[in-house]
Amino acid sequence: MTPRTVEQNDAIRKQRIAQIRNTAVEVYLEKGMQMEMGDIARKAGLGRGTVYHYYNNKLHLVEDLLLEAFEEAALVTAKTMQSSEPPLVRLEQYAALQLESWLRQPFGYILFKNWFHSEPIVVYYNDRLLADFHARLYKPVLEAVEEGIRLGQIAAMQPSTTVSVFFAALIGATGTYIGNKDSSSSTNRDEWIRDVTTVLFKGLQA
């Protein structure tokens, strides 16, 4: 048998890592941090040794998923919050893009859910992650809400309360959608995102 090339080995490695990560997200949604590496191996149809070859333990795997989710959320935040659009428009665009991201990669939803429910996933770099979350993911949204209130575009109340309700609505709606096994098509997703943002922003307008 002809030995595999470096490129072929690299492609297999990337495929295995993606398979393990995607399966870990599914298992986490079912079991939370009670999941075990064996659960992931069984669901992915892989040997336990294969999973441990790429990840020493579930904390390292969860760390990778959290970092990946954080960076995607940061891109969405920067793209929408740094635009020249009025604050209410920026927030609506942010909500739509964040919802789409969470449905495509649910660990983004898990990241926000744990942050706002004060149940952070305890990983090795937890303190740094929490500080980065506040600076890069929470503060820009808070500042957009504060600006919207000053301009009279958003109903006047405590900005932190508005942000909490804003994210609670996004998190709650996403949790319901993910839990509905019949809502998986991209057409349903697009329609669902439009409906959620329409309901949310009619309620936010002053």
Rank of each mutant, 00 (worst) to 15 (best):
V141T: 08
S101P: 03
G175P: 05
A156I: 11
Y94W: 07
A156G: 06
N188F: 06
E147Q: 15
A144D: 03
R150L: 15
L99A: 02
P159F: 06
A135T: 11
E143T: 08
L111H: 09
H134E: 14
L142V: 13
T174W: 00
W115I: 08
N188I: 04
Y138W: 13
I171E: 04
E191G: 07
W115A: 15
L137F: 06
W192E: 02
D190P: 02
P159M: 12
W115P: 08
A96P: 09
I154R: 00
F116R: 01
R136D: 12
R189F: 03
N126I: 13
E146R: 15
G108W: 05
R136Q: 15
W102A: 01
Q105F: 13
W115G: 11
Y138G: 08
N114K: 13
G108H: 04
A144H: 07
R189I: 07
D127C: 05
R150W: 10
T161A: 15
K139R: 13
A155K: 15
E191V: 04
R128Y: 08
A96M: 04
E191M: 09
R104Q: 12
R189S: 05
L103N: 11
L170Q: 01
L103H: 14
K139P: 04
F133G: 07
I149H: 04
L151P: 05
F166C: 03
F133P: 00
F107L: 13
A156R: 13
R104K: 06
F112C: 00
T176V: 14
V145D: 03
W102I: 02
L111I: 07
A96L: 05
P120D: 04
Q153G: 04
K113E: 02
A155F: 15
Y125M: 11
S118I: 12
L103Q: 12
E147G: 11
E143L: 09
Y125C: 03
I110V: 09
V141P: 01
F167K: 00
I149G: 03
N188H: 01
H117Q: 10
S184V: 14
I121Q: 00
R150M: 11
P140Q: 09
G175F: 00
G148L: 08
L170C: 07
Q98F: 04
V163G: 05
E146V: 09
S118K: 15
A168V: 03
A96D: 12
I121F: 02
A135D: 10
L142Q: 14
S164E: 14
E146F: 12
N126R: 14
A95C: 00
R136W: 06
G179M: 04
V123G: 03
F166Y: 15
L99N: 01
F133L: 04
Q105M: 11
E119L: 13
P106G: 03
E191S: 10
F166M: 12
W192A: 02
E100T: 13
D190A: 14
I121L: 07
P120E: 03
N126D: 13
L130P: 05
